[in-house]
């Protein structure tokens, strides 16, 4: 199981990162690459994970929030991803890409979540809506935009999980298609085709929802 979780290889990271491997990395420096920081974590400098958390937990949370449709679940999965990074840090490879490795772990953790809950994205809890209600003075003016976002979220949630996953990876996470192909364990060509097909599907569902609203 551990091998399944972590046996993951992707195109080479920056060469200069390897130079930093055995030196003491200033983990707060913004100049170090993710790869160098993760190698430092692997070599026992656990504080370097704090910098990686600060850099990546926001986008990762955004991805998982849209994938699961559940804020609290997304937070829990982010926590689990970083927990597994620590647990399996010794399996991180010299020629790895940190971001791709992180999303590989995130994908596994999300799959565990879906298996446990055995369901599509959960409906939003009304209590949460109240908690996160938009209290800005011009919130009313922006209701139209929020409405549009709500439709798009609903459309995303109606997609197959695979389609939703590739759209989120390709549009929000600044990953190359080579990295996405590595995460999804398919060819680069297949990843491109799947991303385009998912976009067409999203378009169809989104306009269908708009149509239902106007009729």
């Amino acid at each position: 199981m551990i091998a399944d979780l972590t046996d993951f290889r992707i195109s080479s990271g920056p060469a200069n990162a390897r130079l930093a491997r055995h030196s003491n990395v200033d983990t707060t420096s913004p100049h170090h690459t993710d790869h160098a920081l993760m190698l430092a974590v692997r070599d026992g400098e656990l504080d370097a994970l704090g910098e990686l958390f600060e850099r990546h937990h926001g986008p990762l949370y955004g991805y998982l929030g849209k994938l699961t449709g559940d804020r609290l679940a997304a937070e829990d999965i982010v926590q689990t991803v970083f927990q597994r990074m620590l647990k399996y840090r010794h399996t991180y490879r010299d020629d790895g890409s940190f971001t791709a490795w992180m999303y590989h772990l995130a994908r596994r953790c999300a799959a565990d979540y879906f298996r446990k809950h055995n369901a599509a994205p959960a409906a939003t809890d009304p209590a949460d809506l109240q908690e996160y209600a938009d209290a800005r003075p011009n919130a009313g003016d922006e209701a139209g935009i929020s409405d549009d976002h709500a439709f798009l979220h609903r459309a995303l949630n109606r997609l197959d999980r695979d389609d939703r996953e590739i759209l989120l990876l390709s549009r929000f996470q600044e990953l190359s298609f080579a990295e996405i192909a590595g995460i999804l364990e398919c060819s680069v060509g297949a990843a491109k085709v799947r991303a385009h097909r998912a976009l067409r599907e999203l378009r169809d569902v989104y306009f269908q929802l708009q149509k239902e609203k106007t009729t």
Binding site: L46, G65, A74, F172, L202, R203
Partner: peptide, 25 residues
């Protein structure tokens, strides 16, 4: 569709995530 998708705002996690992470670390 792509423009609308790209315009979706990024959600922000609650404070408990950071607290839990550093407790774990």
């Amino acid at each position: 569709t792509l423009d609308r998708l790209d315009a979706l705002p990024a959600a922000k996690p609650g404070p408990r995530l950071r607290a839990n992470f550093y407790a774990m670390l």
